[in-house]
């Protein structure tokens, strides 16, 4: 009896935490390594934001937001403002949203509610995944080839509409995917309940399932907009750039300014004033994208709380 208790005692003495035990050292080492790498991963974001804030934030003024940009070389001291580029980015993004949201939501509804996992829907899902990986410049060249070059839309070549179409190609896969996934999250019980009171499939989708999935879908649309609004390459081929206001409704058929193309054009100019304008535009663009991302995060959080 005594013998056993002694043995037990010696066994349990090791219950204290030993910082220099092999396992504990390993554990700490791995923890610090993973912390280090995750810090490195977040570093670019922090640095980019800080750099743009310092370079561009100080240039923020009322004139910057309301004036037109001036062509390089006209005035050494000032390059004007980015007013038309802000409006242009908004117009192009709105056009892209108007094209991609109906197509994307319609496609998502088909995948989630109507398709029965047959070959056709598998093909659409696969195609959507491929499309979301297509480089944005390809979307630009594609629209250039079929819209801009052929002047198919009322004889205009470079235009806001063409720009919006190019961006909508980038947005559609995201909207389809989030609609599909959002609808799949809606409980099957809810669908049965609606059908059980004599609702047709159309009524069930439009009045029960779609409203129930509105938050994830809206989140997806916002993320898609955030991605598209910052694109440059597709716009160079389609919307080009303009030094003037897009004031009349017809101006959506004309070349239009955008923040990202303004940055691209002015950042490589040899004039300091233009470079500074590019920094200011970067600041505004990043702010816009950050806002969209935070908004979508907030929306998706609200969804999780509700369910």
């Amino acid at each position: 009896m005594k013998n056993i208790s002694k043995k037990q005692k010696s066994k349990y003495e090791n219950l204290y935490y030993h910082p220099y035990k092999k396992n504990n050292i390993k554990d700490k080492l791995l923890t610090s390594i993973s912390i280090l790498f995750s810090t490195i991963a977040i570093l670019p974001l922090v640095l980019v934001l800080a750099y743009i804030l310092i370079k561009g934030g100080s240039l923020l003024s009322y004139d910057l937001l309301t004036n037109l940009p001036e062509p390089p070389g006209d005035d050494i001291i000032s390059a004007g403002g980015i007013g038309n580029a802000i409006i242009g980015t908004l117009i192009i993004t709105i056009i892209a949203t108007f094209i991609s949201v109906p197509i994307g939501i319609g496609g998502g509804i088909y995948l989630a509610e109507y398709s029965k996992g047959a070959l056709f829907s598998k093909f659409i899902r696969f195609g959507t995944n491929v499309l979301s990986g297509v480089p944005s410049i390809i979307a630009g060249v594609f629209i250039y080839g079929i819209i801009v070059y052929t002047k198919i839309i009322f004889g205009s070549n470079f235009s806001a509409i063409a720009g919006g179409m190019a961006l909508s190609i980038l947005m559609i896969p995201t909207v389809i995917k989030t609609t599909d996934e959002g609808l799949k999250l809606v409980s099957q019980e809810l669908r049965k309940g609606a059908l059980g009171v004599g609702a047709s499939k159309f009524v069930t989708i439009t009045q029960i399932t779609l409203p129930a999935a509105i938050n994830p879908i809206a989140t997806g649309i916002l993320l898609a907009i955030a991605r598209a609004a910052g694109e440059t390459a597709p716009l160079i081929f389609t919307a080009l750039f303009s030094f003037y206001w897009s004031s009349s409704p017809q101006s959506i058929l004309e070349p239009i300014a955008s923040l990202s193309v303004l940055i691209y054009n002015f950042a490589i100019e040899p004039y300091k004033a233009q470079n500074e304008l590019a920094w200011a535009a970067s600041f505004i663009l990043v702010l816009l994208l950050l806002f969209l991302n935070i908004l979508s995060k907030w929306l998706s959080k609200r969804t999780n709380l509700e369910t």
């Binding site: 409980s187 019980e189 809810l190 309940g193 609606a194 059980g196 009171v197 029960i208 409203p211 509700e306």
Partner: peptide, 11 residues
């Protein structure tokens, strides 16, 4: 009409 096992009111 039908009433289901799990209460499933609409949102």
């Amino acid at each position: 009409g039908m009433v289901f096992q799990q209460p499933n009111p609409f949102p």
